[in-house]
Amino acid sequence: DYAYSEDSPRGGDVSIVGWHLQALKACKYTGLDFANLTRCYKKGLDYVERCQLASGAIGYSGPNIGGGSDGTTLAAVGALCFQIWKSSASKVARKAVRFMDKEMKFDWNTADSDLYGHYYAVQCMINNGGPEWERYNKLFRDQVLNNQHKDGYYKVVGGGNKINAVAGSFAGDGGYGRHYRACLATLMLESYYRFLPATGAKTN
């Protein structure tokens, strides 16, 4: 859980489990022997799967939607985790991608501007490929390209609205928010010419 607490009554959430699963995959790619790594990643994937709804949406800490989330952000987190540990053809990933393809929205100047969710979405959609990636590429690309200031930073998201996100700390106009937005936007655009070794596939 937060601060790596092992006895938190909250029980964790898909967002932090997603980061842990990516870290575990990085450990595996070192070629070093990490005790219980297989057991850990399988338990993490089991947790994510338990949080998935029949629609393909994934809840924050259970199979329900709430707390500012519409299910698309964490569907992207879950899809990427299953892609890097299993494959894009895994049931959880396929259900999540179908849900995102149908429900995910992105408009920089409205409440539908959760950059954290789209940071994950661009990775899992480009891994998935096909018409889902083509539609998503059209959804996100110009929103990011057209909202960069000439000095390099990215404009404030949301248009004054509360962001539809679990945590929208990237939305502020202070130094932290600007830096966070620039990191997320840059990583999203890098998906065109970089690839995750964990997926085993390059992208153009």
Rank of each mutant, 00 (worst) to 15 (best):
G174W: 12
D107M: 04
Q123D: 07
M104T: 10
D101M: 00
K105P: 00
Q143C: 07
G158A: 05
C124V: 15
R135L: 03
K105W: 03
N128Q: 12
F106R: 02
K155C: 08
D114E: 05
N137Q: 13
D173V: 14
D114I: 05
A111E: 01
N127Q: 11
Y116H: 13
R141D: 02
K162L: 12
M125Q: 06
G172F: 11
K162Q: 14
N109R: 02
I126L: 06
I126V: 12
H149G: 00
K138P: 02
K95H: 05
K91L: 08
Q123I: 09
K162C: 05
D101E: 07
D151S: 14
Y176F: 14
Y120V: 10
E132W: 10
D112Q: 11
G175E: 15
A165H: 13
R94M: 09
I126P: 01
S113T: 05
G130K: 14
L115I: 07
W108H: 02
W133V: 01
Y116N: 10
N137D: 10
F170Q: 08
N137I: 02
L145A: 13
C124W: 10
F99M: 02
V144Y: 09
Y119E: 04
G172T: 15
D142C: 02
V166G: 14
Y136S: 04
Q123P: 00
N137Y: 10
E134Y: 08
N146S: 11
V166M: 11
N146L: 06
Y136V: 06
S113E: 01
V122F: 08
G172L: 10
